[in-house]
Computed example of a mutant assay.
Amino acid sequence: MQGIIVLNPDELGQDPAVGMDVALSLGVGHLEIRTAYGSNALALDDEQLRGVRRLADERVLRVAALASPLWKWCRPEAVPGKVDCFGFPTQVPAEDRERWVDRALAVADILGTDRVRVFSHLSVGEQTETFRDDPLLTYALEAAKRAGVRLLLENEPVCTVAEPAPLLDVLREHTGLALWLDLGNLYEVGYGTAEAVEVLAPYVEYVHVKDYVPCDDGMKQFVAAGAGDVPYADLLPVLHRVRPVLPYALETHVRESPGDALTRGAMFLRGAVPGGLA
Rank of each mutant, 00 (worst) to 15 (best):
A144D: 00
W71Q: 01
L141P: 00
V52K: 03
A165S: 09
R146L: 09
E251R: 08
A227D: 15
V238E: 11
V124D: 01
E195K: 06
A162L: 08
V254I: 02
A108Q: 01
P202Y: 08
T113E: 04
G29F: 01
E173R: 15
L269R: 07
L136A: 01
Q48D: 12
H208Q: 14
P237W: 05
A272M: 09
L153A: 07
S257V: 08
T90M: 02
R53E: 04
L136R: 04
A278E: 15
V158C: 05
Q127D: 13
P202S: 10
S120T: 02
Y187C: 12
K220V: 12
A144N: 03
L236M: 12
G13W: 11
T175W: 10
L171I: 06
A162P: 07
P135Y: 06
P93R: 04
P274R: 12
V60I: 06
E95T: 10
R103L: 02
G81F: 08
P258N: 05
F119E: 03
E205W: 03
L153N: 04
G184H: 06
E47H: 12
M219E: 15
G192C: 09
K220S: 13
G112A: 09
A36V: 01
D84A: 15
V79D: 14
Q2N: 14
R50M: 07
V158T: 11
A224N: 10
L186A: 10
V197N: 02
G148V: 05
L153P: 04
R264T: 14
